[in-house]
Design a binder for these strands. Structure first.
Length: 450
RNA sequence: GUGGCCGUAGCUCAGCUGGUUAGAGCGCCAGGUUGUGGCCCUGGAGGGCGGGGGUUCAAGUCCCCUCGGCCACCCCA
């Protein structure tokens, strides 16, 4: 086991190339990519806050039992994908593979007034082989509501997901909705399915043959010819729903219809986690052909809080994969969201008098609410202007010996002539900020175009 | 966990059947214009070919191992 502490004290040992890179399945999101992520996250925040959801920041890791209890000991995610570790105090912890269980745990711990409506943007960790749209650390945007079983809440949550995706300008996204039943009807259905499948196990694909008794619902999700031909005539959950579940589903579907949200009823929507009951839904991007086209999904989990030791409390939520959304946005035809999020500043200060002008003027501009950047390290005028141009700034404020002597600043337009037709103006040092405010207001040059 | 393809400068890539000090474009820095960017010209910095071992007089070029990347299965966001 190599550790940083094995380096001799006081000795600087450079990392080798292997160690100095992001671990498998993780990535640094920066530059244009992070700018887009920022836009996506702020769009999400705007949508959910408009609907009364509050931000929840929680721990990135929990007692491992929070996840095993919530997601089921048999779920793939828990069994083979969870990052579990023991801390120095001997506690068995796990990095969150998703956020729902954590949120439910927080609810149990704090007992907030319900319905408790929260949203989050969080990394999630799963130990699996990375591939397109799949990482060991990915990021999720989601909401959870605890404390109401009203089907109108299902409608609100699904609508939130749908409206958000639409706001991103993603085309060709389809919504599938289904029901997993509840403790009153699911057990009997699962039993019926199990015996049906067991009677023709030989016909199932090798992968699922052995898992029929463990989790028969999974077979419904299998895409192989073998399993499909078997499940084609299998008992359907839709026909086995109890009256309450049926009524709930009818109201959800009617509500979506009333809001003009198109969806397809899909009773093979199993979802991977044990805690789901009744409503489940999934949003997928047609543009992302076969592979990882699931943008996100969610559903109701009326027994989860109780399973974690809290009072019986219904709940529902969804999570969307940020990386998936980004992938979908890269597809032709999928327009990006309009965005004023960005890192470029409208003003760039060029200093040829030793740096004091840049130091003072950028501070003054920023305090006035005007984005300003500058070069460091005493570079030539040419180099500084080049940097200004590259920064995306609209205006360069130039202070050289002449300006300093006469107590002025040269404002040079870097993109277009100024309203008065000039390319460059010489204004008094004491009115630069006001001048720039006027120019920026007149031209709308708050940021460089994205 | 299984399988396929791949790994040369910051980026994209060229390096023929193994043979001089490993190249290009972009980017970066500087100069051309001793105070003016975006175009152009010139020059410069920057890699020893993912890592290790082997074959050979000689390996980026062949073999083995390993690490990593991409993609697929599985599962999911």
């Amino acid at each position: 086991m190599v550790s940083a502490s094995s380096d001799r004290e006081g000795e600087q040992v450079a990392l080798d190339e292997q160690a100095a890179r992001a671990p498998i399945g993780t990535q640094d999101i920066w530059g244009e990519a992070s700018r887009q992520v920022e836009a996506v996250v702020s769009t999400f925040a705007k949508h959910v806050e408009l609907a009364g959801y509050g931000l929840l920041l929680g721990p990135m890791f929990e007692d491992a039992r929070v996840f095993t209890r919530a997601m089921g000991h048999a779920s793939e995610v828990v069994v083979k994908e969870m990052y579990t570790f023991e801390d120095h105090g001997g506690r068995l912890l796990a990095l969150r593979p998703e956020a729902t269980a954590s949120v439910a745990r927080a609810f149990v711990q704090h007992r907030p007034p319900s319905p408790w409506k929260v949203w989050y943007a969080t990394p999630a960790f799963r130990y699996e082989r990375p591939q397109a749209g799949r990482y060991r650390q990915h990021h999720q945007l989601g909401v959870e509501v605890l404390g109401s079983a009203d089907p109108d809440l299902d409608v609100e949550v699904i609508a939130l997901a749908e409206r958000f995706v639409a706001a991103l300008g993603l085309a060709g996204v389809s919504l599938r909705v289904g029901s997993l039943g509840d403790p009153a009807c699911r057990p009997a259905y699962v039993e019926a399915l199990r015996s049906y499948l067991a009677s023709r196990a030989e016909a199932c694909c090798a992968e699922h043959r052995g898992r029929i008794s463990v989790n028969p619902l999974r077979v419904l999700d299998c895409k192989t010819q073998e399993c499909r031909s078997v499940t084609a005539d299998a008992p359907r959950l839709q026909e086995a729903l109890c009256a309450d579940c049926r009524n709930h589903q009818d109201r959800v579907l009617a509500g979506l219809d009333a809001l003009g949200i198109a969806c397809k009823l899909d009773d093979s929507l199993v979802r991977g986690l044990d805690y789901y009951t009744r409503t489940t839904f999934e949003l997928s991007a047609d543009a992302l052909a076969s592979a990882q086209n699931g943008l996100g999904g969610g559903g109701r989990y009326d027994g989860l809080v109780e399973a974690l030791g809290g009072p019986p409390t219904p709940g529902i939520g969804f999570a969307m994969g940020i990386e998936r959304l980004m992938l979908a946005r890269l597809r032709p035809g999928a327009a990006g969201p309009p965005s004023d999020v960005g890192t470029s500043t409208p003003v760039f200060v060029v200093d040829m008098v030793g740096g004091s002008a840049a130091r003072d003027l950028t501070d003054e501009l920023r305090r006035a609410g005007i984005g300003a950047d500058r070069a460091f390290g005493q570079r030539s005028l040419k180099a500084q202007l080049k940097a200004a141009d590259r920064s995306g700034a609209y205006y360069a404020c130039i202070v050289g010996p002449d300006e300093q002597a006469r107590g002025s600043v040269a404002i040079r337009s870097l993109r277009d002539v100024m309203p008065g037709g000039e390319r460059q103006l010489d204004v008094g040092r004491d009115v630069v900020v006001a001048e720039l405010m006027g120019l920026i207001a007149a031209t709308g040059a708050t940021r460089a175009p994205l």
